[in-house]
Structures are given as structure tokens and as C-alpha cells.
Nucleic acid binder design. Structure first.
Lengths: 337, 337
DNA sequence: CTGAAAGCGCTTACAG
DNA sequence: CTGAAAGCGCTTACAG
């Protein structure tokens, strides 16, 4: 593996000149630059990131911290962020933490990230105040997807409004007994998302003058399987709902299967509306409230890059719009509720 | 951000002693070691990976190269590999290349990975011979999932056999007109997987004395949407199949939806069998040939770690078993084919 | 058991 | 326009 010294010798210049030529800096004659570039290519020279990082204090890497990568939303965000970062010449270090408190603590303390990345992208984890301070101190700008955090750049949707939009659609269709599939009361990730979507459901119901019935709420854990099981439970009620709002499409997909397996029809017997516009939603013909996922990943990456390029600038906090997509899993209720 | 020098001064020792103490090396008295550890913790000292990397030539990072991360199989592999690597103290650098030839070339030439990682994990990309040589030369052991590559560690399933198993199940049920959903003839990733699964389908048919009918094969591109569209096409044939083997569960899920949308019943009118045991397969009640995904990711990670720890050892090539999981999307044919 | 020193491969003022 | 040299923060023989 060739070093800058090899290139310098082969090109007959000093290593300082090689460095300058390779970085497209001024004060290098066109002739030398070309010679250096040619020699470097011939030697398949690639600068050592370790050495460059030590000299500059910059790693040209961004850390992405998420609870999982194998969940549609996170995977989609990572994919789009990676693409944007790579185009800018940044590497992506992936920290998939799971739900372990210890791992989470290490990541947010900065022990994992310090001196290792130039910036951080946080997904699906909502840090406490001391965690915000610690991670900020670990160095570099931080962008977060899904929540508005003072001091960090952020991109998110309005979860309350999105949930309200889904429920309003069911109300408009004439449903009065509307079930809810959400997360656990005590979210293991400390995320406010489950609570916000639930609040949107409650607000919309009460806006329509309907009482909240705790029996109509079930925990689906934001997974397909969890949504299936939760919907099963709602269907067994003496007075089951005529419609279900699932706080994520994955739960909604599970719910649709459970309803069918129970011998009922969707939407004739039970309507289902999700939230996300998951990649499978269209094929499943699922009515849902769509959020732009790829755009959020790209935007968050962009925010980090901008913060890196212009350190003075205030960090943006953007809320991206959501919109109802009516497909085939919702209709007017056919039985009285 | 504190450096090793800060720790050394605060502990009243040399930086060499700090380094040794922190690495748990011998020839440091228990008393000094404890003092150093305490001071380092107080100062929230974290060694600079750049500096350590420059001194040792080791980055303690593994590169993961895949065409996508937002596809179930790749996301699941990345997730399990990440967990194993993190436990061993390695970082994971993600290179999600998409299908662009240029990106692929750069990654396999080693330009992206050289001096940056200690080893590489390749997913879903099947390199040509010169690419194997180039990436191997870029340094460090390479493990690949999905194909057997001489010179690299590998873990995979027997794609032909798995596909054959799925088709045999349909034959055993009495189906004679069996459709196939696969990839494009000219796979953009250069993967042999689509061809292998198709070959398994053909082999099983001809073993049963059935002729191959090109009209029964459709391209689904290994996506849900693609499977949906491909199944639609097969259903419009003058003489449609009574069963469909989809070479991936994602296509199978799409096919099930397409069949239902066409007003037909699964499995009564058309049986469907997939391959993967996707996380949604159970809820979808999909009959499939299961492959252990998390295990493959962990095993591949393990192989890299072993190769790093014991450079002499020959690199293993493991084929993991698959198995038919009969669920509700397959049954005996009810019409004559 | 401990320290002084060399060296890893870059970048970047500073001279010229 | 170009080069010599310092310095980034570690690790690791080599002495003692």
C-alpha cells in the first residue's frame, strides 16, 4: 500500500506538494498537479484516513445512532442519509443499539462517538437533557429525526396532527367506535412518538364529542406481529370497534391480516387506517397517512453537512408535511356501532 | 477533549504507562493501573482512533458493502452482524451502493475501503474475479454472504436446493402448472442468486417430467410491487398456473395480494410459496422455505473476527440449512391444470 | 515496573 | 510555486 512518500518520490516533489495537489489547493502549478495526480492514480494511492484525521482532527465520518436498522423506517432513513453523505465524501458509521439501556447510555455519553465522527445523526431515540448535553459535548453537530431538540438540528413530522388526520378520516366516514393500536405506555426507547400519536387520536375523538374508551386501545409495539395480536384482542371485545387506527403501517398490516383471519372483511366489517405509507402499503391497498421518509433522511444528512460547512449558522428545525392517502381499507361502517 | 498526555500528567506517569494500563497489558503494577483507570474515567478519556490507527495500522472497523440497506434481507444481516461486531469492539462502516456500476467499481477496487477498515463483509453482490483480487489486496479478510467465493470466507444457503424444495412441495400437492417469479435474466448486481433459484425451479420440474413453459415465468425484481405486477401477468394467461413459486417472500407477498385483487382465493384458486421466511411471512400465513438470516449475519461477522485473530487459518465456507414451512397459502389444486 | 524516544502518514503554517 | 519541519496522539520496542 503506497503512502504519500511513495507518490512524492515517484513524482519528484515533496510530500507537501503532493498533499496540496491532491486536495486541489492553489499554489501548485498545473504541470506538477497533473504529474502528481497521474502518479497517485498509477500507484493506486489512497490517503490514510487515520493519518489525515490525526493531522486535521476531522474524520470525515458521520455516526448514525438508531435502535434498529432492520425496521422499515430506520432502514429507509439510513439508506437515504447514506446516499447523501457519500456524495459529500463522508463515511457512515452505524450504531444499532437495540433497546439495551447500557448501550444507549454509552452511545449518548459520547464514549462511542468521541474523536470518531465529525457529526451525529440520531434516529428513533429521544434523549434526556443530560444526554443531549453529553452528545453535543462529544463534538460536532447533531441532527435528529423524529423530534424537536433544542441545540440540535431536527426534521420530523407532526405526529399528533398526522394521527388526528387518520382518525378524522374515520370520523368523516361515520365511524364512532374507533380502536387504537399504539406502543407501550412506557416506551423503552424514551420516544415521545407513541405518546404523541396517541394524543392525536384522543384529541380528535374528543373534538368530535366522543368519550375515550380505554378498552379500545391495545399495544402493538409498532411491529406487524404486535399489530396482529393487538387487533385480535380488540375483535374479541363484546362491543368491538368498527374501525381501527394503527399508529404505524406495520401494525396496520398486521391488523388487516388479523381481521381477515377472524373471518371478517376489510373494510366492510372493520376499516383500518395506518400511518407512514410503508413501502408495502400500496400493494396492501392500505389507507394511511403518508410521511416522506427518504426526504427526511436526506434532509437530516444535509443539515449535518451544512452545519459542518458553516459552523456559525443556527441549526434548523423542520417539520415536513404528511397527507392522507385513501386506499381500500377504509369505508363507511356497515353495522351500527 | 482530553488526550493521553492529560491522563499521564494527572496520574503522574508517562504516556507509555497510560497506554499499557489502558490496554490491560502486563508489566504495569496493579496500583498504577488502578490509578490510571480512575484518572482516565474522571477525564472521560477516550483514545483517538485516528492516532491509534496510525500507530498500529488497525482501524477496528469493518466495512459492510451492500446494494441496499432498506431491503429486509440486507437490513437483517446488517443488524445481526453489527451486534456481533460491536460486542468485539469493532465499528461498522456502511457502504450502501445502490445499483450504480460506478459506485460498485469504486467499492470493489478497494478505493473506498483501503486503509479504512480491517476487514470487509460483502452482501448481495457477487464480484468478478478481478474484483475479488482487488478487494482482497485492499487489505484484511473478506467474508461474503450468499455466494461461495474462493479466497474469501462465505456463508450462504443452497439456493438451487431451496428453490427445488419449494417447487417439490407444490408438485407433491398435485400441481402441474407452476408459475415462477424471479429476477431479471441479466441481474444488475451480477448476483447468481436469481439464476440459481430459477435453476432449482427448472430442475425440479424436469425431475417430475414436466416441460418448462417460458410463459409461466415472470420477472418480479425481488420486490413486493414487482411480485404483484408479475403475478398479475401470469393470471392473465389463457392458461394460468394453479400455483406460483416466488423466488423471494417479498415477491410472494405481492403475488398473494395480486391474486386476491383479481377476485381469486389463495390457496383455493392459486397456491403461493415463497423463499426466505420474511418477518411478515408468518402474519401473512405464507408457506415458504425458511433460511436463517440473523444467523448468517452473525456467522459472517464471526468469520471476519476469527480471520483477524488467527490470520493463518483457512477461511471457512459454510452452507446453512433451509427448510419448508407449510402455512396457509398452499393447498391441493381445485381445478384441473 | 516504568520512561524516553522513534515512528505511524498525513496537513499546514512558515520560509524562501 | 515548492520544500523542510513541526505536530497531530497514539503504540511499542528498547533501556534501565
Amino acid at each position: 500500500m503506497s503512502t504519500i512518500k511513495d507518490v512524492a518520490e515517484a513524482a519528484g516533489v515533496s510530500i507537501a506538494t503532493v498533499s496540496r495537489a491532491l486536495h486541489g489547493q492553489p499554489r501548485v502549478s498545473e504541470a506538477t498537479r497533473r504529474r502528481v495526480l497521474t502518479v497517485a492514480a498509477d500507484l493506486r494511492y489512497v490517503a490514510s484516513p487515520s493519518a489525515a484525521g490525526l493531522a486535521t482532527g476531522l474524520t470525515h465520518a458521520i455516526g448514525v445512532v438508531a435502535p434498529f436498522v432492520n425496521r422499515w423506517f430506520f432502514a429507509a432513513i439510513v439508506h437515504s442519509a447514506e446516499e447523501r453523505l457519500r456524495r459529500a465524501g463522508y463515511d457512515l458509521l452505524l450504531y444499532s443499539l437495540g433497546t439495551e439501556a447500557e448501550e444507549r447510555r454509552r452511545a449518548f455519553s459520547g464514549a462511542l462517538l468521541r474523536k470518531r465522527v465529525d457529526g451525529v445523526l440520531v434516529l428513533g431515540l429521544h434523549p434526556a437533557e443530560d444526554e443531549v448535553a453529553a452528545l453535543s459535548a462529544a463534538g460536532g453537530p447533531v441532527a435528529i429525526v423524529g423530534k424537536d431538540v433544542p441545540g440540535w438540528a431536527s426534521v420530523r413530522i407532526d405526529d399528533r396532527a398526522a394521527a388526528g388526520c387518520a382518525v378524522r378520516h374515520l370520523l368523516d366516514l361515520g365511524h364512532r367506535r374507533i380502536g387504537f393500536l399504539g406502543g407501550e405506555t412506557d416506551d423503552p426507547l424514551g420516544s415521545t412518538l407513541p405518546g404523541d400519536r396517541r394524543a392525536g387520536y384522543h384529541a380528535e375523538l374528543s373534538g368530535a364529542g366522543l368519550p375515550a374508551d380505554p378498552a379500545l386501545e391495545a399495544v402493538g409495539g409498532f411491529t406487524v406481529r404486535g399489530g396482529y395480536a393487538a387487533a385480535e384482542r380488540l375483535l374479541q371485545l363484546a362491543h368491538p370497534p368498527t374501525a381501527i387506527f394503527a399508529a404505524s403501517d406495520e401494525m396496520a398490516i398486521g391488523a388487516v391480516q388479523a381481521i381477515r383471519r377472524a373471518g371478517l372483511r376489510v373494510p366492510l366489517d372493520v376499516s383500518v387506517v395506518g400511518l407512514d405509507d410503508h413501502e408495502m402499503a400500496e400493494v396492501m391497498d392500505l389507507t394511511t397517512v403518508a410521511q416522506p421518509v427518504g426526504a427526511q433522511g436526506e434532509l437530516a444528512a444535509e443539515m449535518i453537512l451544512t452545519a459542518l460547512a458553516e459552523p456559525g449558522r443556527p441549526l434548523p428545525a423542520v417539520t415536513v408535511p404528511t397527507g392522507l392517502v385513501v386506499r381500500g381499507t377504509t369505508s363507511r361502517p356497515t353495522r351500527r356501532s
